[in-house]
């Protein structure tokens, strides 16, 4: 009956809200070259965790039926995490799939991704090796590995 609205209005609105209230989870977040359907983010590692001090670039692609469908979010900087593919940057997060709701904004999504860093699900791993360390209970090993990558693979501000 009623036509779906263009995502542009909502995206503009999100951008405005973001300028009013910046998100602590990210160093920067916004559209790439004024293309509202393609955003770029730099995520900060939560303090007090093995990811502390890390910076990761993410690419966010908005589908035409946003916000009824979730954006596609991908780590561009490699991150060592059980639920993130080390090479492709693919993220296994329910919010990006079946638990998506149109009330979730891109900013909220990034907050959730930051939360995912500290609440991994080693049972649905995209990175088997780190997940294996977790499952074996080799926590020291897992943590040092994470710290290593957090240092080595850090977004360099390109």
């Amino acid at each position: 009956m009623s036509k779906a609205q263009s995502p542009l209005k909502r995206l503009t609105r999100e951008l405005q809200d973001l300028q009013d209230e910046p998100n602590d989870a990210v160093l920067r977040l916004g559209p790439v070259d004024d293309d509202l359907f393609h955003w770029h983010a730099v995520l900060k590692g939560p303090a007090g965790t093995a990811y502390e001090g890390g910076l990761w670039a993410l690419s966010i692609t908005i589908p035409p039926n946003y916000p009824n469908a979730p954006p596609k979010v991908r780590f561009e900087t490699p991150i060592c995490h059980p639920n993130v593919h080390f090479q492709t940057g693919e993220i296994c997060l329910d919010l990006l799939k079946d638990k998506w709701a149109p009330t979730i904004t891109i900013s909220i999504l990034l907050t959730s991704i930051q939360q995912l860093l500290t609440s991994a699900e080693p049972d649905s791993p995209l990175n088997v090796d780190i997940a294996q360390l977790f499952r074996q209970g080799d926590w020291a090993g897992a943590e040092s590995l994470i710290r290593y990558y957090t240092q080595v693979e850090r977004w360099d501000g390109r």
């Binding site: 965790t49 059980p82 500290t118 609440s119 209970g137 897992a142």
Partner: peptide, 9 residues
């Protein structure tokens, strides 16, 4: 829970 304990979150 183990993993979360590790990450202390």
């Amino acid at each position: 829970p183990s993993i979360r304990e590790v990450l202390r979150f």
